[in-house]
């Protein structure tokens, strides 16, 4: 596996530095410990901080800016960041109204953000946490670490960001973020694995004719492996459990999000999107908003995920609210 990198050790530093140079109008990059903060922080606005392992770009640094995150903390590739980086990011994001940590539900992220939140609280910052756990591929039971946070994270960050921007207080922003999480479900598929730079070998092995259903965003193997099949069939396999689990039905409005895993052409995502619109139509579900593209990735993995968010009027308005980040921009 060839990569456009230098020393694998410096991948995250160099990439985030490049990101900072390309988007100097939006963000500031703090090199050590590494985090990214919004260039023009507002005062007295609830601060939004997210973070996690790198390799999911544009998540999270690509979502720092007006109407979304105030700071992002990139860990090593697929490795959650450490408290010593999360704490200053939390401090930078705080403008007096408290800080919301948006944490994807992985043991590592959870533990590191938990520690950081305790320590930030000790410094007098009010911190709340929302755990994103939208991945229906994982059974949420005593026998697992719980559902993973995947595609829904982007939607939580956008919508909670809009709530913070309009002046909601910490309780309200937390409640909105939680409401998005409660109303979004996701399922993914991998056609190929990805290769973590320092590992140098693919994170799992797939035969030429196999695909992995229920994949996460870290190259973890998924729920089960099946023989390759046409995009229309795969779309149904992803969408149906999402709709079942969400319990969304005829007459309801949703946001349909087809996300690329990094190595899949945009054209293929639109083929999936097309079939998904047909399946939703058959069930009488209306697509109020949509998003198609590479928004939460797993390096160069080939595949996609489908997320469905149940919309109400407030969530729709917050989705439509202006946003100006490197990776999501409208109203500017």
């Amino acid at each position: 596996m060839k990569k456009l990198i230098n020393d694998p050790k410096n991948v995250v530093q160099e990439s985030v530095q490049g990101f900072g140079l390309a988007h100097a109008d939006l963000v500031e990059v703090h090199p050590d410990p590494l985090f990214v903060s919004r260039r023009q922080p507002k005062s007295n606005k609830v601060g939004l901080v997210s973070g996690g392992g790198s390799g999911h770009e544009p998540l999270h640094a690509g979502y720092v800016g007006f109407g979304m995150l105030d700071a992002a903390v990139p860990g090593a590739v697929f490795t959650s960041p450490t408290p010593d980086a999360i704490i200053p990011a939390t401090v930078a994001a705080d403008s007096g109204a408290g800080v919301l940590h948006i944490v994807k539900n992985y043991t590592g992220d959870l533990l590191n953000f938990e520690t950081a939140a305790e320590m930030a609280a000790a410094e007098g910052i009010e911190v709340r946490t929302v755990l994103v756990n939208d991945d229906v591929a994982v059974e949420d039971s005593l026998y697992t670490a719980g559902r993973r946070g995947v595609g829904g994270t982007v939607l939580v960050e956008k919508i909670a960001g809009a709530a913070a921007e309009r002046g909601d207080d910490l309780d309200a922003v937390t409640a909105i973020a939680q409401r998005v999480n409660d109303n979004v479900r996701t399922m993914g598929v991998a056609l190929s694995a990805c290769t973590v730079p320092h590992a140098g070998v693919p994170s799992f092995d797939l035969e030429e004719n196999e695909i992995e259903i229920g994949i996460g965003i870290h190259g973890e193997p998924g729920r089960h492996r099946i023989a390759m099949e046409p995009a229309d069939g795969i779309t149904a396999r992803l969408l149906e459990p999402v709709l079942e689990d969400l319990g969304v039905g005829s007459g309801e409005q949703v946001l349909l999000f087809v996300n690329g895993m990094g190595g899949t052409p945009l054209s293929e995502l639109y083929i999936v999107y097309r079939r998904a619109t047909e399946l939703l139509k058959e069930r009488g579900i209306e697509i109020g908003r949509s998003l198609v593209g590479n928004y939460i990735t797993a390096l160069e993995m080939q595949g996609c995920s489908i997320s469905v968010l149940r919309l109400d009027q407030e969530l729709t308005e917050l989705w439509d609210a202006p946003v100006h980040t490197a990776a999501l921009r409208w109203g500017f």
Binding site: P33, G53, G75, A76, T79, S80, P81, T82, P83, D84, Y106, T107, G108, L111, N112, E114, T115
Partner: peptide, 14 residues
Amino acid sequence: LMSVVGGAAGPLYG
């Protein structure tokens, strides 16, 4: 270890 390792193992060993 707490501030350098990250992931699950970092806070656990820490």
